[in-house]
Amino acid sequence: MKVRIVSLCIFLLCIPALCVAGIVFFRERSVSFVCTGVVLVMLAGYFYVYEKKSSPAWELVIIALMSAMSVLGRIVFAFLPSLKPCSAIIILTAVYFGRETGFMVGAFTALVSNFYFGQGSWTPFQMLAWGLTGYFAGMLGRWLSNNRILLLLYSAVIGVFFSLLMDIYSCLWMDGKVVLSRYLVLISSAAWVTVSYAVSNVVFTALFMEPFGRIFKRLCTKYAIGLYIPEASKQKQEARN
């Protein structure tokens, strides 16, 4: 209950307060302050709720493993220019293990892979963008896990979404505010990157869909974890406890 109150306070009080403070203190560059602040506060709120919630050991371990896998993927597939498997891995994990696991895998992927590729002020934006990729995938999990075409479509759309969010970030970084003309220029000049995100998401989701599903389903059946636990193994787990 206390956790819920604090998280509501974070979302309902801190974010408007940040907006007001930004407008009062930083007239010229208020948008960059407000955006960065809101991103940080959202991440902080999410991590706070996550810290306070009791989660089973398998969840932590799966989050750690899948984040490590997507960092490894970023390293292993580095020979293909601008094709990254991270989003595909995050989406598939979220579909099978739920939205919160998906969010954490996305956020940790961004955080830890930047230990290798360089931290910067883009890290929080990347964490939020990848986290939301996982979160939405987890929300739509029921439909995505049964329908392959929907899954591929989702991964293409989320690639475009990711790219647009990061363009807002680079626009903020350059101007200190969102100048529409500059944003449009950035979007059109980054069109290649956007397309490559969407394509790489689709390619990797198509490649990983079937084998990852097999591995995850096996884990779910064997250890009775995740969202889609077969009835039989659920009963067995209960009997064991």
Partner: peptide
């Protein structure tokens, strides 16, 4: 080939990791 190896890594490691959690 990279994808095949990558998936093999996951399949191997996933079981080991569940042991860690147990």
């Amino acid at each position: 080939r990279s994808a095949v190896l990558f998936i093999a890594c996951l399949a191997y490691e996933a079981e080991r990791v569940m042991d860690i959690s147990m």
